[in-house]
C-alpha cells in the first residue's frame, strides 16, 4: 500500500480483518496498528468472539485424528530437533547426506520442539508436518533399489538440498536451507537431460519436500529463482546445482 492508513481507516478494516477478509498489505497495516492500540485489539477480539459463535458447530472431530496427532506428540527427545538448526555442510557421501537431510526434516516434522519460542521454526515444523506423507515417500525412495542421488550445492559449496531419483523417473527434492523468496518469485527445478535444461517444475517461494517426474537420463539438477509463473528456460545462474551420482 502506497500510503500508510490512518487510525480511522484501520478501524474501518477491523471487522474484515477479524474475518481474515483483508489483503496482505492491509493485514500488515492492521497488525502494526494493533501492536500499539489496545482498543482496536479489544475490538478484534470481540469480532472474533462473534465469529466463533457463528462457527459454533458441535460436530465430533473425525475418528482417529486424535491418535494421529498424539502420535506426532509422542516424539523422541527434544535435543534431536537441534539437527536442522546446524545442518551438516559439505556432505561428502551423497546417500548419507540425503538421508540426513530427510531425517532432519522428519525430526522437525515430528517435533518442532525448539520452535516453542520461535515462530519461524514452528512454521517450518508445521510445513514439514503437512509434508509428512511426501517425506515418507521420499525416505522410502532413498533406500529403494536403484535409487540415484544428487546433492545440490550453492556456488560457495554449501549443500542446500538433496534429490533422489528412482528408475521410473519419479524423484524427490528435499530442500534443506533455501532462503524464502519474495511473493512474486518462485524456485524452479531443472533437470540436465541430454545436455538440455528441462524444467521439472516450480517449487514455490519456500519449497519443502517436492515430488517431480523426469523423463530421460538425468545427469544433474539445478534450481533457479524465477518470476512467479516460472520460465521456459533458466534466466539466471543456478542458486544450487549438483550432478546425479551412479546408483
Amino acid at each position: 500500500m502506497a500510503t500508510p492508513l490512518n487510525h480511522a481507516a484501520i478501524e474501518e478494516l477491523l471487522g474484515a480483518y477479524a474475518l481474515d477478509a483483508v489483503d496482505d498489505d492491509e493485514r500488515d497495516a492492521v497488525e502494526r496498528h494493533l501492536a500499539e492500540c489496545p482498543r482496536c485489539r479489544a475490538e478484534v477480539t470481540e469480532h472474533r468472539e462473534v465469529a466463533a459463535l457463528l462457527a459454533n458447530a458441535g460436530l465430533p472431530a473425525p475418528d482417529g485424528l486424535w491418535d494421529r496427532l498424539a502420535g506426532v506428540l509422542d516424539a523422541p527427545p527434544p535435543q534431536l530437533a537441534l539437527a536442522p538448526v546446524t545442518p551438516p555442510r559439505r556432505r561428502r557421501r551423497a546417500v548419507v547426506g540425503w538421508a540426513a537431510a530427510a531425517v532432519a526434516a522428519a525430526v522437525v516434522a515430528v517435533l518442532g520442539v525448539t520452535a516453542i519460542t520461535q515462530g519461524r521454526r514452528l512454521d517450518h515444523a508445521l510445513q514439514a508436518l503437512r509434508q509428512n506423507g511426501l517425506l515418507r515417500a521420499a525416505l522410502a525412495a532413498s533406500t529403494s533399489t536403484g535409487a540415484r542421488h544428487a546433492e545440490l550445492a550453492s556456488p560457495d559449496g554449501r549443500v542446500l538440498a538433496s534429490a533422489v531419483l528412482l528408475r521410473d523417473g519419479t524423484g524427490f527434492l528435499v530442500r534443506d536451507d533455501l532462503t524464502p523468496l519474495p511473493a512474486d518469485r518462485t524456485y524452479q527445478l531443472w533437470g540436465i537431460i541430454g545436455g538440455d535444461k528441462i524444467s521439472l517444475g516450480l517449487l514455490g517461494r519456500h519449497p519443502g519436500v517436492v515430488a517431480f517426474r523426469a523423463a530421460g537420463d538425468v545427469a544433474g539438477f539445478a534450481v533457479t529463482a524465477e518470476r512467479a509463473g516460472g520460465a521456459v528456460a533458466p534466466t539466471g545462474t543456478p542458486v544450487i546445482a549438483g550432478a546425479v551420482r551412479s546408483a
Binding site: 477480539t45 506428540l73 518442532g112 515462530g119 515444523a125
Partner: peptide, 26 residues
Amino acid sequence: EVVQEVFLRLWHAPDRFDPERGSLRS
C-alpha cells in the same frame, strides 16, 4: 490437516493464547 496443525500449534506455543483476549474456542 488444519485440525492437526491448530492443535500442534497450541501444543508448541500455548503462550500465544492470552485468556485476557477472549476464549480458547474463539
